[in-house]
């Protein structure tokens, strides 16, 4: 039986995607060690299931089991919105052009979950995903020829190497890891409308996983699942939707 080893590469220099994956793996290891659950979503549902089973039931006897769930793209937003807890991590595995993955990524700040996007082929639009790692340069054969499977294996392996280095009681997430608005440099938060009463000028909005009342008079009528930029209890603007599926 093999072990998770960080055997230094001989002759192979890391790609940019592998360097990004290394950074993301360390971040993921810290979050998981701090009690986060891992939520896996993929343009190819079987890859989401494969990623989840690696973490829940490691092939290496004695490796730490981590709570991980595969979520079908069809159920994506409804499942993640209701079942994640703030501080959890969503891993998206698929092309950056997948508008359903982009929709989920755009809502992660509202749910208070970190978003790691393993991009296959194209990178996602700027600003989506807290971490983006390109794991394949094209998306025609990569989902089937072992390239994507290798990327999810390596993610698991790097996380477990990081676990070893972090020790039994790693530091919890630090304050400077709070989400910032992806579309402006202001301190506005991304919020998702949870319920709205027409004509009231207010709506209940989920921000960082917590629902609070927000003044929406500046943005006009809002509907459930709309994404808003919120600052000091006031909605300053709307976030352009990535896809209709919510």
């Amino acid at each position: 039986m093999s072990t998770v080893s960080a055997s230094p590469a001989v002759g192979a220099a890391p790609t940019d995607g592998e360097s990004a994956l290394a950074v993301a793996s360390l971040r993921l290891a810290k979050d998981l060690a701090g009690g986060a659950a891992l939520w896996c979503v993929s343009s190819w549902p079987h890859h989401a299931r494969h990623l989840a089973v690696e973490f829940v039931h490691p092939v290496l006897v004695g490796a730490r089991a981590v709570p991980a769930v595969a979520v079908d793209l069809d159920a994506g937003c409804a499942a993640l919105r209701t079942a994640t807890r703030p501080g959890d991590v969503v891993v998206l595995l698929g092309p950056g052009t997948d508008e359903h993955l982009a929709d989920i990524a755009s809502r992660c700040p509202a749910w208070g979950v970190r978003c790691l996007w393993l991009a296959v082929g194209a990178d996602p639009p700027e600003g989506l995903g807290d971490h983006v790692a390109r794991v394949a340069d094209a998306d025609d054969s990569a989902p089937y020829d072992g390239t994507v499977v290798r990327s999810l294996h390596v993610l698991w392996e790097l996380v477990h190497v990081a676990f070893d280095h972090l020790g039994p009681m790693p530091a919890p997430a630090t304050e400077d890891d709070t989400h910032s608005c992806p579309t402006c440099a202001d301190a506005a938060d991304v919020g998702e409308v949870a319920s709205a009463t027409p004509g009231s000028g207010t709506a209940h909005v989920r921000i960082g996983g917590t629902i609070s009342q927000v003044d929406v008079t500046l943005v006009g009528p809002v509907a459930v699942a709309d994404l808003l930029l919120v600052h000091a209890g006031v909605a300053l603007g709307a976030v352009e939707p990535q896809a209709s599926r919510s």
Partner: peptide, 17 residues
């Protein structure tokens, strides 16, 4: 250093694969 090592590890696993 840890991140550098993780990246090198990823590259090594690609080579082996």
């Amino acid at each position: 250093a840890l991140v550098d090592d993780l990246a090198a590890s990823a590259a090594g696993k690609r080579s082996v694969s």
